[in-house]
Design a protein around this nucleic acid. Structure first.
Length: 717
DNA sequence: AAGGCAAATGTTTTT
DNA sequence: CATTTGCCTT
């Protein structure tokens, strides 16, 4: 067996990790140390050198994106598709298990996954049912409470409320929520994990089956596992299955969501024959950047301890800029970006990272003013959009009538002349008879117990869904989607929404049709709908389109984890914002903020800028902040303070800006144009390709509008 | 059932 | 400050 292709490209420590033959391996992989590489090569090692069947391997990640990347890289390295191998997210794998063993897991065969939106609706309904004042019992906090316990692996029956009346009510709500989910066959994200864990505990035969099947488990981003995920892994691995976990305690930034950094330390105690390997050689950043990162993170107590180093260049010191306000800060960043562009750095090689989403606004405005294209990474996800959820809900109902969450969502969307009280009647009936909302509707209709108007409307709805269901039987997935959009009037409904938003919604719906067209079912076309719905439930459908246009990347520090950029700007690095004021008090949270800072610094390959604003308008209030304590933790020799007044204010681009994006419409950002109806204006944004391409113009007299480039007949001035 | 208005609310978000 | 929400009005 030629192992050279597996080991050649690795350093000594990586090789050791890849070929380690201990039962339990913990790889502490620093930022940029090649952890995915180690994971993928280890799988190749197990299969090609140790002769393990691919079906004996399970690789678990947190995001669908990571799972996809791993699958791609495995097939590239092994020169074959990872057939039989289980590569997926915790939730995806749990879902797969529950689908296969629904009966043993105590679920109905057609159980439905609900997202946090559906979950919130359900909580709101329960609050109303219990007649609780939702100012004292905010739906969000109840949802938070429920999910928090699920993350810890606790059902309502296990929660200790300490006889505290407030908490007693919360437990009561949690219990009612469990009952409601149970009755309607709905499963939230936390429930997937909880059930999968219970499946192991309650069905030893099934557990045994998988313990026979799998010979090696691999877990990515191990520092992000929560209690229930860890417990699930531990039971599955038992004493039989070998396990490799890869993580970095210094990059644990999801503690507030239940992730338990302690799981890394716990690993050595709970698993047999453990061995730890530290990957500390960094292939990403200059040593200047690494020195800064190391110095900052060194302030955290209770680290497992790691020091990143590189054989690469020393690099430039980090530039620190103090803006006098957030506009000035943004202006500085945009200026630097353009400066780098003229020195042959692409826009897409530069990223602006910030602590909270609200910061992006000012930066965006400045980028627009300078005519610099940008792309926001993360943020609103495709399948989270209202219009997409509505469309998907119709698809779900046409596939499976008893999907109550979908029913709730679209029963009156678009409005069809049914008041709240009709819907309430349906709910009551469903609860009394212990049937789905759909069944309840049918019963009410056949009994003629509704008013004329309500029953006509409800009958029309039932017929509509049945029509869609028929269509599902005879049409391809994309044709079905088009049919549904048309028949339900959704497209028109969303198109009617005010101005620009309506247009964007219609466009997204078209994008959904596209997505269904491109969707490739794993088995055959007949299960395409079912498979697509599963994907939509568990995969947020990460960004598509305009990945081709060269644009500055904007993202929160959290979403930046795992990414890298030649030039990075950390914006708003000031006290109260970063570390966030909410985080300084609670124990342990400041450390997490510091890790977030470490994540931010280590995203940079070549150049790093840190900026802050001495004065910032925040929620309408002016606030004066000092530079973040984290900056003070960076050694002085790594920092270079950029003087004020180096920025000469440039004239606002008249004519063609230097760094404008252009597409085939021949229009460029910042360009002045003329429209036969709206008059003169300036191009703010460009979107889409070909006949779909749209352009946002801020007209001098009419304000900002989105226009379809093909029809707008814009003339440049 | 839609539009208008006041009030609430505002870290981070893998699934 | 600015956006979203819910309540109230027609």
């Amino acid at each position: 067996m030629d192992v050279s292709s597996i080991l050649d490209s690795l350093n000594n420590v990586q090789r050791e990790a890849v070929s380690c033959d201990k039962k339990s391996l913990l790889v502490l992989a620093g930022a940029g140390s090649g952890k995915t590489r180690v994971l993928v090569h280890r799988i190749a090692w197990l299969v090609q050198v140790q002769g393990m069947p691919a079906s004996g391997i399970m690789a678990v990640t947190f995001t669908n994106k990571a799972a996809r990347e791993m699958r791609t890289r495995i097939s590239e390295l092994l020169h074959l598709s990872p057939q039989g191998m289980w590569v997926g997210t915790f939730h995806g794998i749990a879902h797969r298990l529950l689908k296969a063993h629904w009966h043993d897991a105590g679920l109905p065969e057609n159980f439905q996954i609900i997202d946090s939106d559906d979950q919130l609706r359900m909580v709101k309904r329960l609050l109303k049912e219990f007649e609780l004042d939702d100012s004292r019992w905010s739906p969000k906090s109840v949802q938070w409470y429920i999910n928090g316990h699920k993350d810890e692996g606790r059902r309502a029956a296990h929660v200790d409320h300490h006889e505290d009346p407030y908490e007693k009510t919360l437990v009561k709500l949690y219990q009612a929520y469990e009952v409601a989910c149970e009755r309607s066959g709905q499963v939230d994200f936390g429930e997937l994990l909880l059930r999968a864990h219970e499946l192991w505990l309650k069905q030893p035969a099934i557990l045994n089956h998988y313990q026979q099947r799998f010979q090696h488990l691999l877990v990515d981003e191990f520092q992000d596992t929560n209690t229930i995920q860890y417990a699930w892994l531990r039971v599955l691995a038992g004493h039989a299955i070998d396990i490799t976990v890869v993580g970095d305690d210094d990059q644990s930034i999801y503690g507030w969501r239940g992730a338990k950094i302690e799981n890394i330390q716990q690993f050595a105690k709970d698993f047999n024959d453990t061995f730890t390997i530290k990957l500390e050689q960094n292939y990403r950043s200059t040593s200047m950047i690494l020195d800064a990162a190391n110095a900052v993170i060194a302030n955290n107590p209770e680290r497992l301890g790691k020091n990143l180093w590189t054989e690469g260049a020393l690099g430039e010191p980090i530039s620190l800029y103090a803006g006098f306000n957030e506009q000035d800060e943004a202006r500085f960043i945009v200026e630097q970006i353009q400066g780098h562009v003229s020195e042959d750095t692409l826009l897409s090689e530069q990223a602006i990272l910030y602590r909270s989403n609200a910061q992006s606004r000012v930066i965006e405005e400045e980028l627009i003013r300078a005519g610099t294209p940008y792309r926001i990474y993360g943020g609103q996800r495709f399948y989270d959009r209202l219009e997409i959820k509505n469309a998907v809900a119709y698809l779900r109902l046409s596939h499976f009538r008893d999907d109550d969450a979908a029913f709730e969502r679209v029963i009156n969307t678009p409005t069809r002349g049914m008041g709240n009280k009709t819907v309430e009647m349906i709910r009551n009936r469903a609860r009394e008879q212990n049937v789905s909302l759909w069944r309840a509707s049918e019963e009410l209709l056949s009994e003629c117990s509704l008013t004329k108007r309500a029953s006509t409307a409800l009958a029309a709805f039932v017929e509509l869904i049945n029509d869609c269901g028929d269509a599902a039987g005879r049409l391809a997935l994309d044709e079905l989607t088009e049919f549904v959009l048309e028949a339900t009037d959704l497209q028109a409904f969303h198109g009617k929404e005010t101005g620009e938003r309506g247009r964007a919604r219609v466009e997204n719906l078209q994008e959904l049709v596209n997505a269904t067209r491109q969707f490739e079912p794993e088995s055959d076309a007949s299960s395409a709908l079912r498979e697509f719905l599963d994907t939509a439930a568990l995969d947020a459908g990460d960004a598509q389109a305009d990945e081709y246009t060269d644009a500055v990347q904007l993202t929160t520090l959290h979403s930046a984890k795992g990414l890298e950029f030649p030039v990075v700007y950390l914006a708003g690095v000031e006290e109260n914002l970063f570390p966030h004021r909410m985080s300084v008090e609670e124990p342990g949270r400041l450390e997490e903020e510091r890790r977030l800072c470490y994540v931010g610094i280590t995203r940079a390959m070549r150049l790093l800028y840190i900026t802050y604003a001495e004065c910032r308008r925040w929620y309408g209030q002016e606030s004066f902040n000092t530079v973040s304590r984290f900056v003070k933790e960076i050694p002085a020799e790594c920092l270079h303070e950029v003087r004020v007044n180096t920025n000469i204010s440039r004239p606002v681009s008249a004519g063609r800006p230097q760094f404008a994006a252009e597409n085939e419409t021949g229009l460029a950002l910042g360009q002045r144009v003329w429209h036969s109806v709206f008059g003169e204006g300036i191009v703010l944004n460009l979107e889409g390709q070909g006949s779909n391409s749209r352009v946002q113009v801020n007209f001098d007299d009419e304000g900002s509008k989105w226009l379809v480039a093909a029809y707008a007949k814009l003339e440049s001035i």
